[in-house]
Simulated scan of single mutants.
Amino acid sequence: MKIILCSIGKGNDDALKSSIEDFSKRISHYYPVEWKIIPTNKIKSGLSEKELKLKESALILQNLKKEDYLVALDARGSMVSSADMASWIASRANESVKQLLFLIGGAYGLDESIIRRANFVWSLSPLTFPHQLVRLILAEQIYRACTIVKNEKYHHA
């Protein structure tokens, strides 16, 4: 199974970049991993929130394959513990999912069409975080899940 971490917006902030890369490298010891950043700077000008979300959803759908297992990160999603996420990821691997794609939306979140397309909608927290920080939290939580599955030292329950 390949893990794809996808985010709408600009590239990684320099202050967080090395930490995101570090956790991504750690994940690669368990699964192939790739980041896809979908820039939207060319479509933002003069659009309403709804129009922007529709344009972003079109870009997202262009980057999705029919067989991709899509996890949409959204405040309306399910909150799960790190241990439960570990079991959940292991189950996707056991189901022979080829690509597990985690999606972080743009500044206004994800369009309803993306939420409907998602196989799972996950909320990291009821709090609101900057998108750059969500990238780091996501990478760390996926790494944590991998170590839990392998019963390694990183996670302390």
Results as ranks from 00 to 15, higher is better:
Glu67Thr: 15
Lys153Trp: 12
Ile43Pro: 03
Lys153Ile: 13
Tyr30His: 05
Ser28Leu: 01
Arg144Cys: 04
Asn63Arg: 07
Ser123Ile: 02
Ser96Glu: 14
Glu152Ala: 12
Glu140Trp: 07
Thr40Ile: 15
Arg116Ser: 14
Leu136Trp: 06
Lys55Ser: 13
Glu51Ala: 11
Lys150Gln: 12
Glu51Leu: 10
Val71Ile: 13
Glu95Tyr: 02
Lys153Asp: 09
Tyr108Gln: 00
Leu127Ile: 08
Leu138Ala: 06
Lys25His: 11
Ile89Cys: 06
Lys65Phe: 09
Ser123Gln: 09
Arg117Gly: 05
Ala139Asp: 00
Pro126Gln: 14
Thr147Asp: 05
Leu64His: 02
Ile27Gly: 08
Ile115Ala: 02
Glu56Thr: 02
Ser48Phe: 10
Ile104Cys: 07
Tyr31Asp: 07
Gln132Met: 05
Cys146Asn: 02
Asn63Lys: 10
Leu59Lys: 00
Ile38Tyr: 10
Leu101Ser: 03
His156Gln: 15
Asp68Glu: 05
Ser123Val: 00
Leu47Gln: 13
Lys50Ser: 15
Arg144Val: 07
Val121Leu: 10
Pro126Gly: 08
Arg76His: 12
Ala86Tyr: 10
Asn151Ala: 10
Ser96His: 14
Ala72Met: 01
Leu64Phe: 07
Lys153His: 13
Gln62Lys: 14
Lys98Tyr: 01
Gly77Pro: 00
Arg135Glu: 09
Trp35Phe: 11
Gln62Met: 05
Asp22His: 14
Ala118Gln: 06
Met79Tyr: 10
Ser57Gln: 01
Lys65Glu: 12
Tyr30Ala: 03
Leu136Phe: 09
Phe120Ala: 08
Asp74Lys: 00
Met85Tyr: 12
Gln132Cys: 11
Pro32Glu: 05
Phe23Thr: 06
Leu101Asn: 04
Asp22Phe: 10
Gly105Met: 02
Gly46Val: 08
Ser81Gly: 06
Asn151His: 12
Leu124Gln: 07
Asn151Gly: 08
Glu152Val: 03
Ala72Gly: 06
Leu61Asp: 11
Val97Cys: 11
Asn151Asp: 15
Ile37His: 03
His156Gly: 13
Ser81Trp: 09
Lys25Gly: 13
Trp35Glu: 08
Ile38Trp: 12
Glu67Leu: 06
Asn41Thr: 12
Gly105Tyr: 09
Ala107Thr: 05
His156Leu: 14
Gly106Gln: 03
Lys42Glu: 15
Thr147Leu: 10
Glu140Asp: 11
Arg144Trp: 05
Asp111Phe: 10
Ser91Glu: 15
Ile38Gln: 05
Arg135Phe: 04
Leu61Met: 15
Leu136Arg: 04
Phe23Ile: 01
Val71His: 01
Glu67Pro: 03
Glu140His: 07
Val71Lys: 00
Ile114Cys: 09
Tyr143Phe: 13
Leu70Ala: 04
Trp35Gly: 06
Glu56Leu: 01
